[in-house]
Write a protein that binds this DNA or RNA. Sequence first.
RNA 1: GCUGUUGUAGCUCAGUGGUAGAGCACUUCCUUGGUAAGGAAGAGGUCGAGAGUUCAAUCCUCUUCAACAGCUCCA
Length: 644
Amino acid sequence: MNVKISLPDGSVREYPQGVKGIEIASSISEGLARVALAIEVDGEIRDLARPIDNDASIKILTWNDKGGKSTFWHSSAHLMAEALEALYPGVKFGAGPAIENGFYYDVDLGGRAFGEDDLAALEAKMKEFAKKDSTFDRSSVSKAEALKYFTEKGDEYKIELINDLQDGTITFYKQGNFTDLCRGPHIPNTGFLKAIKLLNVAGAYWRNNQNNKMLTRIYGITFPKAKELEEYLHLLEEAKKRDHRKLGKELELFAFSERVGMGLPLWLPKGTLLRERLEQFLRRAQVKAGYDPVVTPHIGSKQLYVTSGHYEKYGKDSFQPIRTPDEGEEFLLKPMNCPHHCEIYRTKPRSYRDLPVRLAEFGTVYRYEMSGELHGLTRVRGFTQDDAHIFCRPDQVKEEFVKVIDLVLHVFNSLGFENFTAQVSLRDPENKAKYIGDDELWDRAEREIQEAADERGLKTVAVQGEAAFYGPKLDFMVKDAIGRSWQLGTIQVDYQLPNRFELEYVGSDNQKHRPVMIHRAPFGSLERFVAVLIEHCAGKFPLWLSPDQIAVLPISERFNDYAKIVYDKLKEQDIRGLLDDRDEKIGRKIRDAETKKIPYMLIVGEKEVAENKVAIRRQGQGDQGSVLLEEFVNSFKLECAAPV
RNA sequence: GCUGUUGUAGCUCAGUGGUAGAGCACUUCCUUGGUAAGGAAGAGGUCGAGAGUUCAAUCCUCUUCAACAGCUCCA
């Protein structure tokens, strides 16, 4: 009996029934067999050693395949577990999956301390075991056998996992002296794991539940070649240099002060310049798009948030109300701008002809975030949203939504964010109690969002459980330097708040109708957006945003007067920058300006004074030659225009 | 909030049970230099905060605050 095996190139080969993946690989080429890690059989990744009994289309997976990498890392987690068991007898194991970059294993060390220092010893043990070329052997076990094994071993975590599994589907994998409950698949043997690096240790709740015991999570990464590991570690170092917290300090953009309070950023003059340029850019775009700017206070009566539903949902986990001394009135720091905007909508009767009403505000809001959540400018307790609320008729929802998508895309394109993910954030169908409003409106809102995204050809990823409590969202996710994903732009359809605030408009039928709200913020928050922007451009901002656009550098003090004239002329033209008239050599001044990532350096000495010129040096690009000052101003002006 | 790590000069970091050090930055002087660090001198710290052990604590213990990594959370 033969089976027909289709290969990725479309060819079909016949093999005896029960042929193993590794045998197929060998039959294709010895080279492939040497680097083969796993095999994809009809879309399912399997061990190379598993027999194939039926016709199938297959793909041999190597390090270059995503599935190959994840198999490699998953096997690495098993290797680490083997080493852990050798070093820490009686250790209990939680889960140990492959992740985007590497793997981890959650373990219960029984109260033994495990710090960064212990990583080195564990890593050494792993390397020792890896060299044994132990094979990963798969075996099917009955539920009873599985339970017996782990009961004898005393690993309650695995027992819990097994209890959730169906009898007949349970498999063990064994390499060396280590046996683990595992669905697989695995690479052929531990010898493939040549370059091993354990990265860090952290706590993680068992089954991701805050109420469960906290286990020790050990992160690591492995590669088939030492050189690849080196490159990866180098990449990590480079990424650290782009960290907005580091650059924010170095470039004097923002700071934090313990005395002011954690998570409360202080915007320094240069950072403020940057931020204001961004605001101005969006303000102009929004005027064009028919938004009306409004301003509302930083606090609001508690009653406002009781009405909106925010108090019930977040009241306990918010900054607590501020009380007036005499009357005992309660006010909340505003965590959202929408309730205020609803009240603006209510200031006068609205006709269907007035809609959509688009109210925009750079509104600063304050949210209590748990201390462990705070992170540079990406997660703070006080931040400014580029918020707006669109009040429209139900028949306008999709059109308005699409317009907002266009605005968000315009913002992203203008700032060079190309690698974003459009995430449709839906509610958690398992836990509808977390949300307000009835199913029909939710379904409708979710449908409208998807349709609007499709209309603009956005490739979307739907994620359940990520919706706001009042409605689904379309979130624009961007990764930071270290690969962490952050939500920037967001667009949300909301049928609930108009109900709660009893918003109305008079329709063409002279009857009262309820408008629909769209919440939207293209940047999301200025703080987070600036953080991600810093990391994207590594602190080298586009000219129109750069806090310092030019540095005028006289060759020596003899030319300070001319340099001052040049500097003043540039200032007259609203060109931002500095004059470095320190008593330093030109090399030094250049180095300092380069370090500060100032886009243009204008060097002036004897020749420039004589000809009324400036010598141009571009940051990171070196000497660009000399031009007349007027010429420079003209070309600069063209280049520094903000996108529209 | 939880687990772990860290906290020494403006920044980056050494260091020790006997009240502190480097480099850069800063100030002054010398130098007037043509595309990424010229030279010298000087100033600068309650060693995160509080309590305890000790003859003596920056160092050991406890508490607390903050930062970092991850988890959980995120209107």
